[in-house]
Design a protein around this nucleic acid. Structure first.
Lengths: 332, 332
DNA sequence: TTGAAAGCGTTACCAA
DNA sequence: TTGGTAACGCTTTCAA
């Protein structure tokens, strides 16, 4: 790859001049400008971004740290981030943290060393003090650690109440909850939303809450046990769609028909919720849009523009599908 | 962030010495070494990777260019790549090409400018000449453009024959195929595998091949029309699992029971195939492993070690599940 | 065993 | 309107 020096030599001008036409600043005559452009084409010269980064101490690069790209929630989010970042000339480093603090720290270290301009984190195992030592802007997505950081999330607590109420509306009498990990804030909020609605019911006991760790396999096992012990359950609110698919599978294996004997609602609105059978009713977050918003915020932060909002909490939409489409549903 | 100069000043030695202890080469006395290490800790110094890259002309960074991370095949692949790369100290740039040549080219340009050490591409819209002008190593994954490039893929042609034969074994008499895009090599190979097995059948006409463009929605529509026009079809081989879910949905909406009236087999072995209802029989590629292998190859290439193999073609495994589990199945 | 200095490819300041 | 040059933070060669 040609360097600026070679272009200078080819044109017979100094590197300073080349730099000027490259960056379109400073005076340079039409004539030499044309010569330079010519030479650049001729040599297929493109500036070395590494050298530029060294000088400017910024790299047009951001980090996106997710728990696990393999979890179907995250690709949609990542795509939202990537599309916007790409439009604005940024490239993105991808890292999977597996919710492990040491992996997150490694990525954060890396990002400092590689002079990444900022980061979008979907994580909350890191303590916010460590994060504050970073001098680069950070946007938290999907989870909220701390109101000190710009954040994009959605309404978990109230939406979960809506989910449970929907189950009631379609006639469910005894509603269970498959909860996610206790260390993830949105998981706790969803559980609390559930509890808020059912806590005064005479039937309620916390045996109706079991842990599915936000994945389908654990949710499947947990549901199997739950339904065997509690045949009276006729509605389940799963903390995310992935776990809801586990619920669907468990019910099927137990010969329980959905939605007739058991109505099921998930949370997230991942695409997969459309392809299950029966199709899954879910509380849909605007996943792609959340990615986009986080990207826009981070760009504003990096480019030192004031933020319109520091905290986005998106509404969540109930999407009614077959898994709660009970025949004798109360009018609604 | 502290620089090497500040460490030098704090220790009272020259930057050259600091560099020596950092890289563990050249002579340096135990005593000064300890002092330096002390100071590094004190100042929380970590070398600036950008400066290092500028000198070494390599960056411990690779690009991973995929059609679309949102397609459930790719996250598993990406995860395989990322895990290995991460273990070896590389960070990865992620890019979605949407199968568009101009997007791919942009990423490739970017990678040259940012001095990326190499790339893993899941793409074939790029002509190989452009790729050859890159002086950085490239590994092709999932698709094979050209035998000039190191490649990781799986056995598409013969496995597709196996898929169709499986359908025959479970008693299907008239088998259709939902094909993928004509410009994707593995899609064509899968179709050809199907044709190879059925071309001599008296019933065969190419009306039994319809295009689902490797996505569920198009496959859904295509299957709807197909089954309406051809009620005699009792087996479908879908070119990938995503399209197979579309087939499942179409059959369900037409009141066709699976597998009794229609047996369905997919291709890929993505996780989603386990959660459909009925569960999907599929030809499973070792997706994660393919990602790992591509990563290992690229690292060898970058670090100038000879490649054990330049071309990996992994076997594909038939996973029998409910969607082809016909009762009166011939013994097998 | 250590230090000085050139060089990696840019940019931007100051002079001309 | 242009050029020379220091600087960005590091590595490595050469000399001491």
């Amino acid at each position: 790859m040609a360097t600026i020096k070679e272009v200078a030599k080819a044109t017979g001008v100094s590197v300073a001049t080349i730099s000027r036409v490259l960056n379109n600043n400073g005076y340079v005559s039409e004539e030499t400008k044309n010569k330079v452009i010519e030479a650049i084409k001729e040599l297929d010269y493109r500036p070395n971004e590494v050298a530029r980064s060294l000088y400017h101490k910024q790299s047009k690069t951001i980090s996106l740290i997710l728990p696990d790209i393999t979890n179907p929630f995250f690709p949609e989010l990542a795509r939202g981030v990537e599309d916007i970042m790409n439009d604005h000339g940024y490239t993105i480093f991808l890292g999977n943290s597996d919710e492990k603090a040491n992996k997150e720290e490694r990525y954060l270290d890396m990002m400092e060393q590689k002079h990444v301009d900022g980061a979008i984190l979907a994580t909350n195992t890191l303590d916010s003090n460590h994060l504050k030592t970073l001098k680069k802007p950070v946007v938290i997505i999907d989870r909220s650690i701390n109101s000190d950081f710009p954040t994009v999330c959605s309404e978990n607590f109230h939406s979960s109440q809506d989910a449970v109420r929907h189950l009631k509306e379609v006639g469910c009498k005894v509603i269970a909850h498959i909860e996610g990990p206790a260390h993830i804030t949105n998981s706790v909020l969803r559980k609390n939303g559930y509890i808020e609605v059912v806590k005064k019911e005479s039937w309620f006991t916390d045996e109706y809450i079991v842990n599915g760790h936000y994945n389908d396999k654990d949710a499947y096992q947990a549901t199997l046990t739950l339904l065997k012990n509690h045949p009276e359950i006729d509605g389940i609110f799963a903390g995310n769609d992935l776990m809801a698919t586990g619920v669907l599978k468990a019910a099927r294996n137990l010969g329980i028909s959905i939605p007739e004997q058991l109505a099921v609602i998930g949370f997230d609105g991942i695409r997969m919720s459309e392809i299950t059978s029966p199709e899954l009713t879910t509380m849909a977050q605007p996943i792609y849009k959340m990615g986009e918003t986080a990207a826009y915020m981070l760009i504003d932060l990096i480019e030192q523009r004031p933020l319109r909002e520091r905290y986005y909490k998106y509404p969540v939409q109930l999407i009614k599908r077959q898994s709660t489409n009970v025949q004798n549903q109360s009018i609604n």
